[in-house]
Design a protein around this nucleic acid. Sequence first.
DNA 1: ATGTAGTTTATAATGATTCTAAATAAAGTG
DNA 2: CACTTTATTTAGAATCATTATAAACTACAT
Lengths: 132, 132
Amino acid sequence: MKYREKLRNSGLRPTKQRIQICEVLFDTDKTFHFTINELEQKIKKKTNTKISLATVYNTVHAFEKKGYLKQIPINSNQTYFDTNVSDHHHFYDLKEEKLIDLENADVGPINIKRKIDGKKIKSVEILVRLES
Amino acid sequence: MKYREKLRNSGLRPTKQRIQICEVLFDTDKTFHFTINELEQKIKKKTNTKISLATVYNTVHAFEKKGYLKQIPINSNQTYFDTNVSDHHHFYDLKEEKLIDLENADVGPINIKRKIDGKKIKSVEILVRLES
DNA sequence: ATGTAGTTTATAATGATTCTAAATAAAGTG
DNA sequence: CACTTTATTTAGAATCATTATAAACTACAT
């Protein structure tokens, strides 16, 4: 199984739960955005097994730390994650409360001219809020 | 008092609490970022009176709706607000958990090339995460 | 097989935010 | 001014996402 390797190589034990979560997250061409609750629903539907909510949180955070998931900075009561970890930005449709990917080509290069001593830029994220 | 007018003109009754909160937020040259809890502390210090937490929430949301405050999109367990409502961006220092203003000139023009039918761009915000 | 270190789990705890309903205060009316 | 109406404040309760806890379980090395 492909995910066993991937997990082991990241120093994460390939448990049944982690492999199932991998399948839900990564067995698809399209990347997608999700909240923890949405992910829990997907897992239930796809695998017909119940993974503890705590495990879902743990796993998502572990995957984020390893760079397999990204948090999307947005003001919402729930945290949004993205399976698309490439450098890219987002539209946020305020009415639908839906995120839409913006490819880097849709935005053009961004040049942050100011530097802060002793600090490195880790990420640059644009959120474009949309209204109707 | 200047804030009485401002409030009345926005359709908000100029109550003692709202005026005090205005003083804490706007009686300063520098704009600043805050969470609700930080604001509550500031109010206590500056006015020596206690305003109910619920009122602080209500007022901040009312002011946001009127455009006197902006929410800053960031992943944190607390919501950050900004008294600087002009178009600008932010550094977020991950270690210090501190926001730093980025002037528009520090970033250069941003051109969102993609359009979504029937939607207008309401805001474009960049978050630059900093690590040490 | 056996030990150990990492994981999972149900449940409890935390903490920011929102809700509720009663008390209070501002504005409007005669 | 009285008096009514309507908005606002308030303490405390409720909600809800997330994190902590600690016991049971499991992958893996020896």
